[in-house]
Design a protein around this nucleic acid. Structure first.
Lengths: 223, 223
DNA sequence: TCCATCGTTCGTTCCATGACGAACCGTTTC
DNA sequence: GAAACGGTTCGTCATGGAACGAACGATGGA
């Protein structure tokens, strides 16, 4: 009698505190092994196995074996966007203002930069004419191609990836789009390896280092 | 230890087959009374009451009393977008191609037109220069203002509404944006009152009437 | 080879909660 | 006023499933 996609099955897979927490942990973009996910959700390895299996059957996550470890990641960027959409709804209500300031300032969203940092960088790239807006994505302008190469990011390999190149991702704290996709991930990775931002332990939160302050200002102006 | 919005509470509210089905029913944009939602989900009125209360406490739906009836609707367009995001994920997998053709052709998404019909109209308006793309929304061009007025839609009252005027809504079957927001809703309502499209019973699906075929072609060209 | 570690499987326990019917309250209609 | 109807509340039942510990297989390191 129903119609369209099988929402009930998906909702069942998502609708558990432990499992949604696992998805939240994976939103950092890191690949996590089963044990980390068990610890991160405060649950025994045995229980974690069951949940992870269920998430995998629902195609929300994927796993690969690495030796005796099993590492998990979100199945697709679409899943990440779904989780973001859930966050966008969950953020209102009485606890709305309880969103921790560090997370609003800078955080990982799946595998790219979000929060005010991600927004600021995206805005700067738009202002500088390095990015332009397209229907469902950003587009890299000629000057943008030079800019990214100069920033130390090789574009050719990124274009060969199957995932979207410069996706637009809606930010639950800023309520606007920031740069995602292969290009966004590469940018985040580059900023990270430059030592400009560092992970906060056990959180999606990021901190900008002193050298990062300088570097970001130099490249993106006042964020 | 957690951070950000309270996903667990939201996931709990969403993660039940009956409740997600209720949200799905409300995605048609209609306001439905409790009894209809009970019948639509195949559950007793008593059970429906409990579910509806829970959804309301999670701020996913809102209700108003009308006489001895209680009518429900989605709380905000943000909720509608969240449900769409869930659908977008749920649609892949083995049953992907099982999405009923009528729904792909034309359907309600919350309160505006979606599916190929919604996409086609949106595209035609873009091609005609009546709409332009903005960051997170569409914008009405000067020629667009004339067009909508000529089509029988008063814009002034729409602009006064608190909701977004010309929102972009991602379509789970077409995977692109279509026109939503106050303007999208008004357009859908107008097309409906012209008798160009009709509801399919017990479904989000829409059918284009013969006069609708002509009217749509005349105004939007080949869809 | 032996041991440590990781993940899975199995069996068990236990709690949350989804469902219903019956009784009840308020509104509308006749 | 009486009857009909919509919705809510209450009590009860049953079931699903989340959690754990223990035992087991597999992998990698010493």
């Amino acid at each position: 009698m129903d119609a369209g996609p099988d929402l009930a099955a998906l909702a069942g897979a998502v609708g558990d505190a432990t499992r949604i927490r696992m998805l939240e942990l994976l939103m950092e973009g890191r690949s996590l092994v089963a044990k980390e996910l068990a610890f991160g959700t405060g649950v025994s390895p045995a229980t974690a196995t069951v949940h992870l299996k269920r998430l995998e059957q629902a195609r929300l996550i994927r796993s690969t074996r690495q030796g005796r470890n099993k590492v998990f990641r979100l199945a697709t960027p679409t899943v990440a966007r779904m989780v973001e959409a859930l966050m966008t709804v969950a953020v209102r209500g009485p606890r709305a203002s309880a969103t921790p300031e560090p997370l609003r300032a800078a955080r990982y969203c799946y595998d790219h930069l979000a929060g005010r940092l991600g927004m600021g960088i995206t805005d700067a790239l738009l202002r500088g004419g390095h990015l332009s807006l397209r229907r469902r994505a950003f587009a890299l302008t000629p000057s943008g191609e030079d800019w990214f190469e100069a920033f130390g990011i090789e574009l050719a390999p990124l274009r060969e990836q199957r995932r979207q190149f410069a996706h637009r991702c809606l930010d639950w704290s800023e309520r606007r789009d920031h740069l995602a996709g292969a290009l966004g991930a590469a940018l985040a990775s580059r900023v990270f390896s430059l030592g400009w931002v560092e992970r906060q332990p056990d959180s999606r939160g990021l901190v900008v280092t002193p050298s990062g302050q300088r570097g970001l200002r130099r490249h993106f102006g006042a964020l």
